[in-house]
Write a protein that binds this DNA or RNA. Structure first.
Lengths: 209, 209
DNA sequence: TTGTGTGAATTCCTTCACAGCG
DNA sequence: CGCTGTGAAGGAATTCACACAA
């Protein structure tokens, strides 16, 4: 860890990790950089380079033992324990996230849900009680939650994000279309606005017409 | 368009586009690469380089006229007309997307929603009728929809994606964690799995502890 | 043999720095 | 002046190609 690992390498690890888990679930025991690469549309050399940043996980002539590589990636990604997550905004998207059953098996537990609307506060989503966003800071501090998913209306995004920082949140997955301005050493941000992603595609789709 | 524009440049355009729209909504008329860059945490030179790939949109000494630049980006991103979108999978996430009111104002109209479940087929989400996924190909062909958002369970993702290709879909926004294997010249793919994005963050959050 | 890990080569991306225009 | 657009420089990321281990 002398030279920090490039972020672009880190961004590929979850993809490797999930693909390996699928392979394992299908009963496979070993794989190679070539096979993984073909599945993912990535060159074999790149996969080897990426993994070699963290250690020597493969065996020459054989490839990688899937269960071992999964364990290594689990440690690298800090997924060897589960994480509590707060959902901020119980609109359509926030509700969907809170209901979604795909997080828990992957080690992410939705622990807190917040909203501003008096109609929603106090009501339940599954077994989660929707909390008043005014209580955001004490609730998050008390629960020790480090990760938030932000699904509030655009206009509120920056203000709520500032609150999250004060509450000690360390990672924000931003589903709004507002680019957040936050202290970069304190919070890790990821922007995941669906409209941007659709527009990225329409650029290419229009071209091919 | 002699040399194709790098994808990494294209990926930044929607962010510029949306930020400019926000500035415009706030009554601002001009901006500079410096100001935009500071808002987005991107260097001014990069913004100028990116935009210069498509033409000369600025005025020396003045900067950019926001309304003009928005129009240019609208054309570049093919957002000068609206797009119809199909949502495949009416589970929690699919329902949320279908209900979400942020797409239409940005030119994306949810036109079709599909699911497999007999309990859902025929019921309504807002004014949209949930269709049988067995009817996917004819319905999409008939409606001429080019973009799909994929929110089916992981296990079904590849098979449904293959159907989408047969139906003539040209862009898939993939919310499953399955990396899709599709003919690259035919379909434009974007992977947006929330679990991967959370794992990308946990890498860094763990480190700083 | 097969397939890893890795220096070297290459390609790609970003930043620099400045000419030139309004 | 102030700020764009852009060659040139510098830095990163990817691919190549091969030594070497199982």
């Amino acid at each position: 860890m002398q030279t920090p690992i490039p972020d672009i390498v880190v961004s590929r690890l979850p993809v490797y990790f999930q693909t390996l888990q699928t392979m394992q679930a299908e009963g496979q025991h070993t794989t190679s950089s070539k096979e993984l690469g073909e599945k993912l549309g990535i060159s074999a050399a790149q996969i080897r380079k990426d993994l070699s940043q963290f250690g020597e996980f493969g065996k020459q002539g054989t490839g990688y033992i899937i269960s071992f590589l999964i364990d290594q990636l689990k440690t690298i990604l800090n997924m060897d324990h589960s994480w509590d997550v707060a959902v901020i905004g119980a609109g359509n998207l926030g509700k969907a996230i809170a209901h979604y059953h795909g997080f828990a098996p992957q080690g992410f537990n939705i622990k807190l849900v917040f909203d501003t609307s008096p109609d929603l506060i106090g009501t339940n989503i599954g077994d989660l009680n929707i909390l008043d966003i005014d209580e955001l800071i004490p609730c998050i501090k008390k629960a020790g939650v480090k990760i938030a998913m932000l699904t509030v209306p655009d206009a509120a995004a920056q203000a709520v994000a500032d609150e999250l920082v004060k509450a000690g949140i360390e990672g924000i997955l931003n589903y709004t279309s507002t680019p957040l301005n936050l202290p970069p050493r304190v919070v890790h941000l990821r922007h995941s606005d669906p409209v941007s992603q659709l527009q990225h595609m329409t650029y290419y789709i229009g071209k091919s017409k």
